[in-house]
Simulated scan of single mutants.
Amino acid sequence: MYDIRPNLLIGFHGCDAAVCHELINKPDKVKLNKEPFDWLGHGIYFWENNYERALQWAKDKHKRGRIKEPAVVGAVLQLGLCCDFLDSKYIKILQDYYASMEESYRLSDLPLPKNRDLPNDEHKDRILRELDCAAIEYMHARIDQTIQRDMQTKGFSDYRKFDSTRGVFTEGGPAFSGAGIFEKSHIQVCVRNVNCIKGFFLPRKEIDFK
Rank of each mutant, 00 (worst) to 15 (best):
P27N: 04
D208L: 15
L40R: 14
D144M: 08
F176N: 12
H13A: 00
W57C: 07
V189P: 01
Q78T: 07
P203M: 10
M139T: 07
R192Q: 13
L112G: 01
L128I: 11
N120H: 11
L110T: 11
L9Y: 08
S185G: 09
E171Y: 09
T165N: 07
I44C: 00
D96C: 10
F85V: 03
P203T: 08
K92A: 12
T153C: 10
L32F: 01
K161L: 13
K154S: 02
K61A: 12
L110C: 11
G155D: 04
H21V: 00
V194W: 00
A71Q: 02
I4D: 10
C196L: 04
L81M: 11
Y2H: 14
E48C: 06
W57G: 03
C20Y: 01
D84Y: 02
K124L: 14
E137D: 05
R192F: 10
K59S: 04
H21L: 03
G180S: 13
L112K: 02
L79C: 14
A175H: 05
P36N: 14
R204K: 14
L110S: 11
M151K: 11
W39F: 04
E48I: 02
G80C: 03
L128Q: 13
R204T: 14
L86F: 07
H42S: 03
I187V: 15
G178Y: 06
R149F: 09
G172W: 04
N193K: 05
I187N: 07
L94V: 12
R149S: 13
E48Q: 12
A135E: 12
G173Q: 08
D163H: 15
N25E: 14
L81C: 08
A71H: 00
E103S: 09
A135K: 15
I187R: 06
E48N: 06
R204L: 11
A175V: 05
F209N: 09
D28P: 01
D132V: 01
A134S: 13
T146N: 10
Y138H: 08
V72R: 07
A141K: 12
F37P: 06
A18Y: 10
K61R: 15
G180V: 10
A18K: 15
L128T: 06
H21C: 01
N7A: 14
D150N: 04
L77R: 00
L23C: 00
D150F: 02
K154L: 09
K63V: 12
R5I: 12
R116W: 07
Y2A: 14
C196H: 02
K198G: 00
G155Q: 03
V191D: 02
L202I: 08
L202E: 13
S104M: 11
G65K: 01
C20A: 09
Q188D: 00
E22N: 15
D84F: 00
C83P: 06
D117E: 15
G80D: 04
Y2M: 12
K63R: 15
Q152Y: 05
M139S: 04
A179L: 06
D117L: 11
D208I: 15
L23W: 01
H123Q: 14
P174N: 06
